[in-house]
């Protein structure tokens, strides 16, 4: 699958990728109303990674329906819509509207956003808030609800368990890791927003560790995300306990990365005489 915010609405990659071959397309996070995002610079490169502070710029729910959906309807690949909000009510309304649209196979709930009513603390950093958002979405969306966890917490298993208990059908992890970079010529932060989310190969060991931990504490399926660039990376996540994986930043470097990873996993299975990818899931955990 392609990770939210790194693959646009699919159309952007249409001339480079066979979209029909992907496991799923996860659309850029949408909110009820359009958001204009943060001032530039929004991006800075770091060693084997990048920082972004896009500020959740998106076209909003209505324009998603009117401008983006018709292209996605033309592709057999399942569409998962990533949603974000300022309040629990926002998430609820998004879930309700998307529930009516058959093409939306599942929603992925981005809980790394600040809860405006609770003084801006991110939903995903507090197990109770994460529970409340998940429950609200599950009540209004009848197909699978996937909750996307933030790594910027002390113990990710607490949030994971709270979300499972609230009724989530699956978890995806991780979102970006909070970081920053400073320009030593101007002596200013490189991002206008000062802080940004680190992604790419640099975060892979953190993501893998978190997938491992969460796989040991919940029983719903996990989608592994974080720095996956090659088939080998993807296989590590499966071995740690992920049932599926998402490719993010790697799409920027090689737009065909997701397709090549799918192919590479197949080659690995064949080479090692493994019948099904399911045999890999959590294999590294078994003693």
């Amino acid at each position: 699958m392609t990770a939210s915010g790194t693959f646009g609405y699919g159309e952007e990659f249409g001339s480079l990728v066979n979209l029909h071959r992907l496991g799923a397309i996860i659309a850029k996070g949408i909110s009820l109303l359009p958001r204009q995002g943060n001032p530039p610079p929004r991006i800075a490169e770091t060693a084997c990674g990048m920082l972004n502070a896009i500020g959740l710029e998106n076209v909003g729910l209505e324009r998603f329906f009117s401008e983006k959906l018709s292209f996605l309807r033309g592709i057999d690949t399942p569409l998962i819509v990533n949603i974000l909000g300022d309040t629990i009510e926002d998430y609820q309304q998004l879930a309700k509207r998307l529930n009516d649209e058959e093409k939306v196979a599942a929603v992925e709930v981005n809980i790394s956003c600040p809860n405006v009513k609770q003084g801006g603390v991110a939903f995903g950093t507090d197990p109770d808030m994460a529970h409340a958002v998940t429950k609200a979405v599950c009540q209004h969306f009848s197909r699978p609800v996937i909750v996307k966890l933030s790594p910027n917490v002390t113990d990710i298993t607490l949030v994971a368990r709270a979300v499972e208990e609230a009724g989530a059908d699956g978890l995806s992890l991780i979102n970006t890791v909070l970081g920053m970079a400073i320009d030593i010529e101007s002596c200013r932060p490189k991002l206008a927003n000062t802080f940004g989310g680190l992604s790419g190969p640099a975060i892979k060991p953190i993501a893998l560790r978190m997938v491992w931990q969460v796989a040991g504490s919940v029983s719903i399926p996990i989608i592994g995300i974080g720095g996956i660039t090659t088939p080998e990376d993807a296989i590590e996540f499966l071995l740690a306990g992920a049932t599926a994986i998402q490719v993010g930043t790697a799409n920027f470097i090689n737009p065909q990365a997701t397709e090549e990873i799918i192919q590479g996993i197949g080659t690995y299975l064949e080479k090692n005489g493994i019948a099904s990818v399911e045999d890999l899931i959590g294999k590294a955990r078994r003693v």
Binding site: K28, Q36, P39, P40, F252
Partner: peptide, 24 residues
């Protein structure tokens, strides 16, 4: 020129403020 990650209209990193200052 702006900082760019993808060049494919996906990352939204290459924002330039519009003349009306109401978006990018």
């Amino acid at each position: 020129e702006t900082m760019m990650a993808c060049g494919l209209a996906a990352c939204l990193g290459c924002a330039v403020l519009r003349a009306d200052m109401k978006g990018y």
